[in-house]
Amino acid sequence: MDSKLLLGAAAGIIVAVGGMAVAQRYSAQSAADTEAAAKAAEAAREADAYADVRRVNPVMEQVRTPRKDCEQVTVNKRLPERDGNVGGTLIGAVVGGALGNQVGRGNGRKAATVAGAVAGGVVGHELDKRHQGGRVVTSTETRCREVADVSDRVVGYDVTYNYKGRDYTTRMDYDPGERIRVEPTVQPVGESAR
């Protein structure tokens, strides 16, 4: 074989290998640059996806919880008469009969005695009903009434935040802290610019 041909082939192989190495190096550098650029763009998007919180105000609601409030109270009660209010009727009948017996003679006296006993019994019964007899006793009773305990409960948070130079307000279920995540391409739903 000719030495020039061998020398030319060797030089061609060296140039090809060197060209591949250079291409690979620039390709790797280009990929690294592309990856770094993608990371920088992602970081910029992430930075745009957050806004600084200016104010957080808890939204309160009053809650009424019903319950029974019971207490022991001392009560005075009058016990009923031992004879069941019969004593006045009997005494009235005896007195009325004795007075009726003083009137008239014979059968008239008997009729007056019976009429006096009946009238005296009725009057004695009526007086006995009005009589506040019986012993007074003291007892303890439980008396209850319905009351409502009122307490405040946090039902949400009104959050004011600044996004790209404008203030927005939204209601959230939780306190977001110092920063809030927002969608950079879409204006958040239910929020108004100030």
Score class of each variant (00 low, 15 high):
V118S: 01
L99R: 08
T142P: 02
Y50W: 14
V123R: 04
D69H: 02
S151P: 03
C144W: 14
V154A: 00
A148N: 15
D152G: 02
P80Q: 04
T142R: 10
G88M: 11
S139Q: 12
D52L: 01
Y161L: 04
K129V: 13
T113L: 11
G100K: 06
G92W: 10
P66L: 07
G108E: 12
A119D: 07
V159I: 00
T138D: 03
G120L: 04
I91M: 15
G133K: 11
R105M: 08
Q62R: 07
R109E: 11
V122H: 00
A112V: 08
L90K: 10
D52I: 03
V56L: 02
E126Y: 12
V137H: 03
A47V: 01
L79G: 06
R166E: 06
G108L: 15
G121Q: 00
A37P: 05
P80F: 04
V123W: 05
V159L: 00
E46W: 11
E42A: 15
Q102I: 05
K110G: 10
Q102A: 13
G106C: 13
C144D: 05
K129S: 02
T160L: 04
V86W: 14
A43D: 00
Q72R: 11
V63R: 05
L127F: 13
E81W: 11
N107Q: 14
G84P: 12
R82M: 12
R153T: 00
A41T: 15
A93R: 13
V137I: 14
V147F: 03
G92R: 00
V118G: 04
D158I: 12
E42L: 13
R64G: 03
V147Y: 10
D69G: 04
G165H: 10
A41F: 15
T140A: 02
A47I: 10
P58M: 04
E81C: 06
N57D: 14
H125E: 01
V123N: 10
E126D: 09
V147I: 06
H131L: 15
D158Q: 07
N76S: 11
T138F: 12
D128Q: 00
V123Y: 01
T74W: 12
P66C: 07
Q72S: 08
V118Y: 13
R64N: 00
R55M: 09
V136L: 04
V95I: 14
